[in-house]
């Protein structure tokens, strides 16, 4: 893949004696949206920071936009927009002042025209004189996005951009992301939301600092080949506890009034649930696993394999 926007191998980073990112290799293609998933503390933020030069990797090498991540951080910074997890613009500056500040830092020409355009594009024009600190979460996030794309980057690194933002604002945000990707921008976005993961072209799943799954959602689901049944009925919490003990049942998860019962060994799973399928009060149905089922499976798999150290 010669058009890889990000191409890194063996990225490793430790803080003290804790290995936060362990041998992560990534290839990210142009114009695609990559969802970066994984539990808290799995190393998503650290990986993003290494990609944009905020942290120096302990080991590993590679390129970002064709520039060496170790030696050409300045070039990468110039062409990358990074949106931090925590709002990191100036709360005591207005929206417009913040954007002008960023535009000047990138030494952009036509400063006012660009700021006007960014305000317009993200619907911030009428609020441009408001202090950033007075904005609600959704508006802050819009402002942060506007600041990241002001210098027309080729790559966007977004670190949990929609945390704490209402569904409507999230949807608008993702529409923006798709529009940007459609225009050729590559986006790597970390998230905890499965519905957001499903809006990505490809996903990367990282846990305990290791990249353990990648590909399109279809691919990820297909390669893990997880047998899944859903069951409806009374007293599901009791049933859940019973089912969990059975051989072949890897995970049981409740989704409202439905339980998802998953196992990688299909035959064993079916044998175990056979007696329960006879119960008249329970309604069983073969279903396809969701992304979340896969991830829960991946996580529990790691635990039992002892691969994962404690966080």
């Amino acid at each position: 893949m010669s058009d890889a926007v990000i191409d890194v191998q063996g990225l490793t980073k430790s803080f003290g004696d804790k290995r936060v990112v362990d041998d992560v290799s990534l290839r990210v293609g142009k114009g695609q949206i990559y969802g970066f998933l994984g539990p808290n503390g799995s190393g998503k933020t650290t990986t993003l920071r290494m990609l944009c030069g905020l942290l120096t990797p302990d080991a590993g090498s590679g390129s970002c936009l064709g520039y060496d991540i170790r030696r050409q951080a300045a070039e990468i910074k110039r062409r990358t927009g990074y949106m931090t997890q925590r709002f990191s613009l100036y709360e005591d500056l207005t929206i417009r002042e913040n954007l002008s500040f960023v535009a000047r830092l990138y030494a952009l020409d036509r400063l006012n025209a660009r700021v006007d355009a960014a305000l317009e594009q993200l619907g911030l024009t009428s609020r441009q004189k408001q202090l950033a600190g007075q904005l609600s979460g959704g508006w802050k996030q819009r402002l942060a996005l506007a600041a990241c794309i002001l210098h027309e980057p080729e790559l966007l690194l977004l670190d949990e951009p929609t945390a704490g933002v209402d569904p409507k604002a999230r949807r608008d945000f993702w529409d923006q992301i798709h529009a940007l990707a459609g225009a050729g921008l590559t986006v790597l976005v970390s998230t905890h939301y499965m519905d957001e993961a499903e809006r990505c072209h490809e996903i990367l799943y990282i846990a305990y600092g290791r990249l353990i799954a990648k590909g399109t959602i279809k691919d990820v689901i297909a390669t893990h080949n997880l047998a899944t049944w859903s069951v409806e009925g009374p007293n599901l919490h009791l049933l859940s506890r019973e089912l969990q003990q059975l051989p072949g049942v890897d995970t049981v998860a409740a989704f409202g009034t439905i339980l998802h019962v998953c196992g990688h060994d299909e035959a064993s799973l079916e044998k175990s649930i056979a007696p329960y399928r006879q119960r008249p009060e329970l309604h069983w149905e073969r279903s396809s696993p969701s992304l979340e089922d896969i991830f829960i499976q991946l996580m529990s798999g790691l635990d039992t394999n002892g691969l994962a150290a404690k966080r």
Binding site: C52, G53, L54, A74, K77, T84, S88, L105
Partner: peptide, 13 residues
Amino acid sequence: ERGTMENLLAMPV
């Protein structure tokens, strides 16, 4: 302290 350092460092300054 306010977290704006991360943003500043991510920009080419």
